[in-house]
Amino acid sequence: MLIKGYDDGPLVAGESLLPRPGFWSNYLMAICGNEPGASYVPEWFGDDGADADDLSEVLFDPERWPVFRAPAQGGPGVVVIYRNLLGDYGIDYLLTHPGRSHAQHVASWEGDLSGTGLSWDELIRIADTPATGEGVKDSAARLLLVLPLLTDPDLPDTAPARLTAALSEAGAPQDTASTTAEHLLAQLTRRSQHDPTWESPLSGA
């Protein structure tokens, strides 16, 4: 797999990892990790500790960097890359634009998001308009995949229910999915409130 700017990275398609036990807890639990007094466990996402540990070895393998593609019909999509460089680990988020030959790096996750994010409405548009070709097609998985890019303090009233449904479809227990959704959104919106200069990378596109 070739992506401009990652010529030396051993990129591999990662979409087949999404249904595996342990994926979503590995991917999303970091968002919750800085909330004071909270204790998050893989079971919140329908996983157990052994599954999460096993999959973390796959996700963070320095010899194989998983790539997750969420191209969107008629507009920018997102590519997520596990940048497993020794001493420089992170998750990179790139926007893909129709008609452009290269992806635009917009953010990285290294314990927190650096760069620019997207509004809730932009995340929903990407989640609900999968393009043809390779990549993640399921709207629930697409929403969860782009969720760390949320940088929007003003969410619609429908956001918790929509995220709860996505978590449930991904395997989160019915009795905890809504609580997990609320914690994820609270952490993301709390972060964005500290950045009054927030601006979507899609602004003016």
Rank of each mutant, 00 (worst) to 15 (best):
V58R: 06
T151F: 00
D138N: 15
A107Q: 03
V146C: 10
F68W: 08
G115D: 13
A103M: 06
L123C: 15
G75R: 15
W24L: 02
L149T: 05
G135D: 11
I81C: 11
I31E: 07
L59A: 03
K137L: 14
Y40F: 15
D92V: 07
N84K: 03
S114E: 14
M29L: 15
P148V: 08
A140V: 12
Y89G: 05
S114N: 10
Y89T: 06
Q73C: 11
D51P: 00
L85W: 01
D128P: 00
P76C: 14
D54S: 10
E63C: 02
R83L: 08
M29W: 03
G115M: 10
I91A: 05
R142Y: 12
A72T: 11
V58G: 01
T129W: 03
L155A: 01
Q104T: 12
T96K: 07
L55V: 02
P66F: 09
G22K: 04
G99R: 04
C32Q: 15
T132F: 11
L113C: 02
D112A: 13
W44E: 09
G46Q: 06
S114I: 08
P130V: 04
A70Y: 05
S139P: 15
D157Q: 02
Q73M: 13
D154C: 01
P76R: 13
L147T: 04
G33E: 15
P156T: 03
L113Y: 01
D54L: 14
D51Y: 00
D53P: 00
H105P: 11
G99A: 08
T158W: 00
V136N: 10
R69E: 12
K137T: 15
L55M: 10
R125L: 11
